[in-house]
């Protein structure tokens, strides 16, 4: 992921509703200080999954940063619940999962829970801001299936692997079929490349 930002890139989080969740009080304090530095005013701070649920049921949240260790549950559980809770628009809001002691299986667990991003600690401001800027530009679609609910886990849109049939309904076949309409005349092709103003 690129660390450079565009020259004109600006981030205005002053009106963003942000939920910060961490089971450890000092960890939550550090997170809140970081987001205050980013310009976030009065984030909703939670230490438990119960608190998180109450907040997302009560108000619209634009960004959630959830530690994997909450006081009464794991962050993964909250994210899985959120994605299927049908709380429009909060169920579709971006969620950054912050993990501490991380085994590879937990990284996949976070992704499969429906997190938009998994960030390993130490979650320093540089890394967190990179992820926020990326999420600002995120165009991924949302997937709701029996086995998964959350942002499309395929970040790159390169089509299905070579030699395999795509599973999306709008994946196109590599085979080009027989033309169903007459070929364009050369004048018509030229016109596509040289548009001209016409009087209507």
């Amino acid at each position: 992921m690129s660390q450079a930002y565009g020259k004109t890139e600006r981030v205005n989080l002053s009106t963003a509703e942000v939920l910060l969740a961490c089971g450890d009080l000092q960890g939550l304090t550090i997170m809140a200080e970081m987001f205050a530095g980013f310009g976030v005013h009065s984030p909703r701070k939670c230490q438990t999954m119960a608190d998180c649920k109450a907040v997302v049921k009560e108000r619209i949240i634009n960004l959630m940063v959830v530690d994997s260790a909450l006081n009464d549950a794991e962050g993964y559980e909250f994210i899985s619940w959120l994605r299927r809770a049908e709380l429009d628009p909060n169920s579709f809001a971006p969620v950054i999962l912050v993990t501490g002691h991380t085994r590879p299986s937990q990284v996949f667990r976070g992704r499969d829970a429906g997190a938009s991003f998994v960030v390993a600690k130490p979650a320093v401001p540089t890394v967190m801001m990179q992820r926020i800027v990326w999420l600002m530009h995120d165009q991924r679609k949302f997937v709701n299936s029996p086995g998964y609910c959350g942002p499309d886990r395929r970040v790159k849109a390169l089509g299905p692997p070579v030699g395999m049939k795509g599973r999306r309904h709008d994946d196109l076949s590599a085979e080009v079929g027989i033309a169903k309409t007459p070929n364009l005349e050369q004048d018509e092709i030229d016109a596509l490349f040289n548009p001209k103003a016409v009087a209507l």
Partner: peptide, 17 residues
Amino acid sequence: VENKLGQIAREPGGRRP
């Protein structure tokens, strides 16, 4: 889905990353 975070964060003002 609508990227509300992107809309809000691009509002005038703000700060360079």
